[in-house]
Design a protein around this nucleic acid. Structure first.
Lengths: 203, 203
DNA sequence: ACCTGAACACCGTTCAAGT
DNA sequence: ACCTGAACACCGTTCAAGT
């Protein structure tokens, strides 16, 4: 075949196909991805730097909705919106999280969204230096953790043939209750915001 | 060489060597592990089921300290002790966390510790069914998140050559402030405990 | 510029052979 | 029972060859 007149691949196409594989199988492989795209493995390397680049692309896809979140005058409301959109992005593709956790964040879209959060906390709220970084880390962990628990409940702990308090609780639980998980997330988010607000008053 | 009179390998030896590699390099490979142990790759398979088994063994090593945590009459204190020991276990080996997150928990030592937590929350505190599982998940996420943020701060976000609110905050931050991270963890833990207590009063 | 096939180094796992 | 070397299927990456 060789070079077609119209390129059949693009970064966008590759990233979304990879994400689809992750959603379906919980993982993706470069050969699997090439097969899904009807292309030879080496073709991919004309568009992406390698596997890690594709993973970063997936991170970009998950954080893209954050771009459209409207700002708010109240810093607490701005943080709320940011955290909810961030969590939602990951919650929609929980299988991707382990991959993302094991790799440094370098995707520009994602970094830009962290910059936005940093600006909200610095310019609007008035946090500085170390406090600022701690706040970002807390919010980051909250969103990731909340999305992570959607990935798994029945699957996190192997339901072997024991009979214990844990296995009974697992059996009693319905499949991942997304609504309940969301409420737990929102409650913890309010707690963090309140704690930041208290900290600001003290200064 | 063939079979030695005294076995030179054991599960314990394999697991601890693997954990040392993870601490040193952030990852481990079966060949690397064999090399470190001065043994051929196939020898390992006489003692462990495979790579996933070794990862579960590492999980067991990290949760072993939990075995020695003394029980407490007060459920709130019991939960506090459990969560602190759990977090400390992971915080001592943060590089292992991505590996652990991507694999179902099947290690018996770890499962036994989750059973203990479930018993505390069920028998001592009085939580039931779904509430129980939600509480466990919240505590699990808290500990994992807290340990995760120790893994990284300067490394999570690629410090490229931009100048933004985020990069300035990163530059201002000292290396991972373990003490500050611990205080943030303990504050969030108290919040969860208080929220569980309030929930119990309501019933 | 963009696709291909062939090649390479590496990984996880299996298995027959040795004691 | 426990170590070994050889073999296998698979993965990520590179590169010269084609248009």
């Amino acid at each position: 075949m060789a070079r077609p007149h119209q390129p059949i691949l693009s970064r966008e196409l590759i990233m979304t196909a990879a994400l689809e594989l992750v959603d379906k199988d919980g993982r993706f492989t470069v050969p699997e991805l090439a097969h899904k795209l009807g292309v030879s493995v080496s073709s991919l390397y004309h568009h992406v730097g390698g596997r890690a680049d594709i993973v970063e692309g997936i991170r970009g896809l998950l954080t893209r909705p954050l771009t459209e979140v409207a700002p708010a005058d109240d810093w607490q409301e701005a943080v709320r919106r940011w955290a909810n959109a961030y969590r939602d992005g990951f919650a929609a593709h929980p299988a991707a999280i382990p991959m993302l956790v094991s790799q440094t964040v370098s995707n520009p879209v994602t970094l830009a969204q962290y910059d936005r959060l940093a600006e909200i906390l610095e310019d609007q709220a008035g946090l500085t230096g170390d406090d600022l970084l701690v706040a970002i880390t807390m919010l980051d962990n909250l969103c990731l953790g909340a999305a992570l628990d959607l990935a798994a409940p029945p699957e996190i702990w192997s339901a072997d043939n024991r009979d214990t308090a844990l296995t009974r609780a697992l059996a009693a639980a319905p499949d991942p209750d997304r609504d309940r998980s969301r409420r737990a997330f929102e409650r913890q988010l309010e707690v963090i915001i309140a704690s930041l607000a208290r900290q600001l008053v003290r200064d």
